[in-house]
Design a protein around this nucleic acid. Structure first.
Lengths: 264, 264
DNA sequence: CAGTGGTCTAGACCACCTA
DNA sequence: AGGTGGTCTAGACCACTGC
């Protein structure tokens, strides 16, 4: 196998041997490594937009892995809309992908949403407190009336400009570690891992259109009375138990919510 | 192989042999057949919500196919959020899936959106005409000023009640068959196949929040000045060329736009 | 520890497209 | 006809989970 998955990946490009920068490596599996190599070649233009990339067998030979492994990597790229696969013809780089701002499976990832729109994202924690669950929160999180939740209010900023107002509620009973000095900027997956010792299995997102509320307008700015998007996200753990409920408001004239969907 | 993919599928359930109804069969591949069998077992409660389903090896033995084939079927179910897979433990039926109204890859499929909300869908063609492309349409469809488009205006109904106003534009130059007697109710994939001799490769959808326009309100009814969702969909062919541009308006208080997203 | 899902291989055949 | 992606197999090993 010509791929070393430990910390550095070597591969041949034409005649030369390339050392892939370590910061690109986030994988422990060969197919993920292949995925990252191909992704990098698409990004740096080695595989130009619209052009045909090498066939499965060629990639399999070049990288020294089986064709099945190449296929799982290609399947991931195709699912994210980066390549188009046409039976009997070849695999092509999707030239329109830049238009998309989020991956289909990451609608809840606000950082990705902001950066997919070409901004630099940052997060500011407005408030964090423990309080009884609202009726809606109790219903969604399957709590009894009076049960407490931890409530976070955060603002996501694009190039320092506030663009998303995010409210999140988590049952206080789930907390396992003290919340002091919590870094509001980390990924929700890690928040749950570090402070709640839970793994998130899936999320269900509701997309609504609403008139902007006064308090929201004060945070986000802009005209009163305009229509904005409201994304309600419920995160679930492994046994279908709800872990968190979030309500996110943002202006779709600033942040475009654009999804690519490949034909099955 | 104990599966016959031709038109009838036989499989064992406990001790009995089951004849799967023909109307459930839409596949020519073994893994699709397995997928449909498992889907049917989830729907009819053979695999109860939240429960653990048989392991990959058990399914592979029972159905007489290889484990890899079972895995591709399970991967499809997992991608649609119907099952949760936990390494070292098992595969579980997602008990919350009923809450979702659309599959992640089918945001543009308005029929699925309506039926996912539990209504019976029907489509009414309001107008169909040939006219010069608007500025926006010309831009999105890569047309020259003055080029003509075929313009459809349709209303999607949920239990006979109008819920979605859909405008679609297709470059007239792409038309290959006369459009008379066109059935506005068929799938867009088939419209393109039958009348344009084109295959759709992927779609890019933009989600916006807007105040309802007067004309839209006349069709959909309800309060003037309320916020509704606007989905702009561009369909592309194989070589990244745009094939159609659609603008869909609907009220998210009637039709919920809900997506399941499984954790990678 | 045994059983589960996750990864990978080497090889085979098929369906489809282009030339 | 030759090459492409699509499907399938049989077998192997690994990583993780729960007992």
């Amino acid at each position: 196998m010509s791929l070393e998955g430990v910390c550095i990946i070597l591969y041949k490009k034409g005649q030369t041997t390339i050392l892939l920068p370590m910061n690109l490596i986030q994988t422990r599996s060969v197919s993920n490594a292949v995925d990252e190599i191909l992704l990098e070649r698409i990004r740096d233009g080695t595989y130009a937009p619209g052009s045909r990339i090498p066939s499965e067998s060629e990639l399999s030979d070049e990288l020294g892995v089986s064709r099945a492994t190449v296929r799982t990597a290609l399947a991931k790229l195709a699912a994210n809309g980066l390549i188009l696969r046409i039976q009997g013809n070849g695999t092509f780089v999707n030239a329109r992908i830049k238009q998309a701002s989020v991956q289909p499976g990451n609608l809840w990832d606000l950082v990705q949403l902001i950066e997919g729109n070409g901004f630099k994202s940052s997060i500011r924690l407005l408030a964090m407190k423990r309080k009884p669950a609202s009726e809606k929160e109790a219903h969604v999180l399957a709590l009894e009336p009076g049960d407490e939740v931890i409530h976070f209010q955060r603002v996501f900023q694009a190039d320092e400009r506030p663009v998303i107002l995010a409210d999140n509620a988590v049952p206080a009973a789930l907390l396992r570690e003290p919340l002091e000095n919590m870094d509001g900027g980390i990924h929700i997956r890690d928040i749950f891992k570090n402070y709640f010792h839970q793994k998130i299995a899936f999320a269900i997102t509701d997309i609504h259109s609403v008139l902007i509320a006064e308090e929201t307008c004060e945070v986000l700015g802009g005209d009163a009375g305009r229509a904005i998007l409201q994304l309600n996200v419920t995160f679930y753990g492994r046994n279908n138990l709800p872990l968190a409920y979030g309500v996110n408001y943002f202006d779709d004239s600033v942040l475009r919510l654009t999804l690519v969907q490949t034909w099955s």
